[in-house]
Each structure stands twice: as C-alpha cells, then as structure tokens.
Computed example of a mutant assay.
Amino acid sequence: MSISNPYDYQAGTAPLLISIPHAGTRLTPAVAEGLSDAARSLPDTDWHLPTLYDFAAGLGAHMLIGSYSRLVVDLNRPADDKPLYATATTGLYPDTLFDGTPAFLPGQSPDADQRRRYLDQIWQPYHRQLQDTLSAIKARHGYALLLDAHSIASMIPRLFDGRLPDLNIGTNDGASCAPSLQETLVERCGQQPFSYVFNGRFKGGYITRAYGQPHARQHAVQLELAQCNYLTEHAPFDYLPERAGQLQQVLRLLVSSQLAWAEKAL
C-alpha cells in the first residue's frame, strides 16, 4: 500500500508555524476495515481546527495539517511510543478511544508491518516538514515560534475530572518556551472571557516537548481547546459558527500576542 499526501503544508511569511496534527480523517484500508462501531465516527478527531484557525494565514503563519486520522498513527507521540503522561493516555498506534472503548474489533487492528509503514510514510514525513519549516523560519528571522493546535471533548472522565477549562495551554512546565512568552500568554488569557489553565492536564505532547528549544531560539506552545466552545460534541460533530466566532477572536489575540512578543524580545 502506498500512502500519498500525508499532510497539507501552506507556506507563510511570519516566524510562526501552526501545527495541527490531529484534524485528519483519512484512513488506510486496514484501519478502516478493523474499526469498532464506536470508532467509526472518529470521535477523537480535532474536528474543524483548520477552519477555526483560518484567520492565521492572514497573519502570515505557516500551516501544517495532518491528513490521516490519529487512529492510523498519532503524530503527537514519539516514534518509540514511550508514554508522555503517567495518567491514562493513548499511544503512537491507539487501540482504545479516549473514553477507554476499544478502537478495533477483536483481532482486527493493523499488524506490526502495516504500522511500521504508517510510521515511515505518515509520521516521518510530517515531522520532516515540521523541522524543515522551523529551520527555514530560523534562517530567515533568527528565531521560530511553534503553536501546536489541538482540541478535545470537554468531558472525558477517563482522562480528567469534571469539565475541562476552555483553553489549556502547555509549555512542558515552562521548558518549551521563554518564561516571558508564557507570562505574556498568561496576561492575555486574563483579558478574555474563557476559562484557562497553564500546564494542567495537558502540558504539551511530543511536538511541544521535542521542538520547544528556547535555548536555540525556538519556542513552542501547545493549545488544547475544549470542543464545546465551537462544535457539537457528538457525531456528526457540527461546527457552530456563532460560538466559533467568539473563540476565534481569542485565538487571534493569542497568536498576535506571540508574534508581538517575539518582535520585542528576540
């Protein structure tokens, strides 16, 4: 099986790359044939994020968007599949959904050879493009900013208690970006109406941790959004333009603040 177009990349002019690894819905034949009934609607997808961030191109951001579902291979997990969290999570090749439901019918998950192919033909190209883009940005501007964009259902008891805050910002406990960038984002979050937390349940996945290198003038932030603020949290996961418009204003504020911070600090 040959895999084509594992991602969509749109070049920009600003020193910012927005990575959206989990919005993809494409499936390989082996994954499509083996999915459980609960998984067929792809409930753990970061639905509609490219639409939510469609303002970013106007700010000059580079955009990198994964094409394949995380049920094929998770682009935000390390290639060696080492766990990122001590609490419940999913791995490089998820066999369960976020709520703990099996993702595949018994004995129907892709075999080891198929999964190695997904790593080589989907995961590796995405990360090569990510690194190449950051390198090109640094060559042009002297520094690079990375925003790793995600969303998740607002209530998943297996992963976290109660309702998730609206904005969940992760900087790997301050290790993936300059302290002053995090301080800037904290200040901006305090100026808007949505609830927020820094380095709570979501501190940043593999992308934030691997590419956040402030010592090398490369600053990464993960933003996990509670999906109730822009879509219906059940199939068919309809986009809600009125709610989304309010959230987009805040996202624009946060993206613009990162760019403004860099112009002054770097």
Rank of each mutant, 00 (worst) to 15 (best):
L49F: 08
G58F: 02
S69A: 11
R70S: 07
G12F: 14
T28A: 03
V73A: 07
I3T: 09
Y53L: 14
A39G: 00
L84Y: 03
L64R: 05
G34S: 08
L92K: 12
Q10N: 08
P21Y: 12
P50G: 10
T13F: 14
D80S: 12
L92G: 00
A11F: 09
V72L: 05
P83T: 06
T87D: 15
D44C: 02
D99C: 03
L17C: 07
A30M: 10
R70Y: 01
A103E: 05
P102I: 15
T45F: 12
P94H: 11
Y93L: 04
K82I: 09
P15M: 01
A30R: 00
A57E: 10
D95H: 13
I65Q: 15
T45R: 13
E33V: 00
L27D: 09
G12W: 09
I18A: 10
A39M: 02
I3M: 07
A23C: 04
A11I: 06
P15V: 09
L49K: 02
S69I: 09
A86D: 15
H22S: 11
A103K: 07
R26Q: 12
S67N: 06
L27S: 05
Y7G: 11
S36V: 03
P21N: 03
D74M: 00
A88V: 05
D99Y: 02
V72T: 07
I18H: 08
G58L: 13
P94R: 06
H48V: 01
D95M: 04
A30T: 14
S2N: 15
T51G: 00
D8G: 14
A38Y: 13
H48E: 06
A32H: 12
I3N: 05
D44W: 00
S19N: 10
L27K: 04
T101Y: 10
H22L: 00
L16Q: 10
T45I: 12
P83R: 05
Y7I: 04
P15Q: 09
L75W: 08
A30F: 04
A56D: 14
N5Q: 15
D74V: 05
L49W: 10
P94C: 03
A23S: 13
K82D: 05
F98I: 00
P83C: 08
H22Q: 07
P21L: 10
N76S: 09
P102F: 04
D37M: 13
K82H: 14
D80M: 02
V72Y: 09
L35S: 01
L97E: 13
P102N: 02
N76Y: 10
H48M: 06
P15H: 15
T89A: 13
G34R: 06
A103D: 14
L17A: 10
R26T: 08
A38W: 03
S67G: 03
L59K: 11
E33H: 09
G12M: 07
S2Q: 15
Y9V: 08
L84V: 08
D44K: 04
A79K: 11
